[in-house]
Design a protein around this nucleic acid. Structure first.
Lengths: 201, 201
DNA sequence: TGGGAAACGATACCTTTGGTATCGTTTCGA
DNA sequence: TCGAAACGATACCAAAGGTATCGTTTCCCA
């Protein structure tokens, strides 16, 4: 049997991802060329195309492998508080240069169905699953009602964050996150314990 | 004094906008080339560039001049009902091939600051102003409270629509719109009419 | 331990496309 | 009526994603 040949260079792989992340975060997807990424990583352009099928795939992997866990749900005393803190984490992530990665991939996905599927399956849905799990925990803790559509609630929670990231209509500051969180609570919080007066008060 | 020269052809102008709208709505911004738009409109490519500075500007004007009023607030018995119907209109607009225009322009705007500004100033903000006016009317009618941040409320109302349009995470069906509208009401509706007792009840 | 297969960096190349330059021609208005 | 500018057509340019191929290097396995 023939041998396998020279193995892929792990150092080249990592250098490419790091260069792609740094350049795209700073200047955006379209402004960065593949030649530039290759030169910055000290690598031949063909080496990139031996590891990934196209430019979008490189940036997608940069996001997932290097900074994919920066918005994980933080520990907190209870599920609702963990959700609140995660919203602030996600806003900070979007405000930072990392936001350019998301903007770039969503932008390219509009004309690249394969990328759109990959972005949903590898970025969006896993994170939505985390939110869903958190909301279920909050329900079990008795903090949230149990009779609403969770997917719709997730859209309402995070939709306005993506909206401000992509449309630039407003600032993703802490006040906005607090307002969004409170509006979510208003609609989904379990009825507060002490309800002494009957409905016909 | 010299004369003015031959005037711009209004028929060429309109033919270009119609071709751009039709082709981009059907196949998307990136998949349609300027040569193709020119050929479809029966026009020289240079004529397009005499009327618009670049491809994005043509599509932007197609949106505004040809279908910009398809999501106007419909007449209704009261402001809240008008808002509810407009949400359904906007969802239908996004579900139709017109949604490709919005997706295309938002996508291109991520790497084109001038287009981003134009999209906000000419598309987004005028429509947000309509929503703001509607919400103020609903407040005056006594249907909504008057102590919330209107801009944040608009983001929460429409953010999830743009989110589903751009991310494709869920269907923009009527149930989703109803849920979104109800969640908005839950947080912002005025306390139901009869409030006979003073605050210290 | 040595030979073959495949990855490596480098570079030339192909194709597409947005945008420009320039042609001779047409149309208007002053 | 004539000049200026727009017209359709076409050749062209530059940038960039992606491919092909070079000689070289590295490693696994026989």
């Amino acid at each position: 049997m023939g041998t396998i040949g020279r193995p892929r260079s792990k150092s080249a792989h990592e250098a490419i991802l790091k260069s792609a992340l740094r350049l795209v975060a700073k200047r955006g997807f379209r402004a960065v060329s593949m030649n530039e990424i290759a030169a910055d990583a000290g690598v031949g352009k063909m080496t990139i195309y031996r590891h990934w099928p196209n430019k979008a795939a490189v940036v997608m992997d940069s996001l997932l492998e290097l900074i994919g866990n920066e918005t994980a749900f933080p520990e907190a005393g209870n599920a609702l508080e963990s959700l609140r803190r995660q919203l602030h984490l996600q806003a900070a992530f979007f405000r930072s240069s990392r936001g350019n990665l998301i903007r770039s991939l969503v932008s390219e996905a509009q004309s690249d169905p394969e990328l759109a599927t990959a972005f949903r399956d590898r970025w969006l849905y896993p994170r939505r699953d985390d939110v869903r799990q958190n909301i279920k925990a909050a329900i079990l803790e008795g903090s949230l009602r149990d009779d609403f559509n969770i997917d719709t609630a997730i859209d309402q929670l995070y939709g306005s964050l993506y909206y401000r990231l992509l449309l630039g209509s407003g600032v993703l500051n802490e006040q906005f996150i607090e307002d969004t969180y409170q509006q979510f609570l208003t609609g989904h919080q379990a009825r507060l314990a002490v309800r002494k007066t009957p409905k016909s008060a």
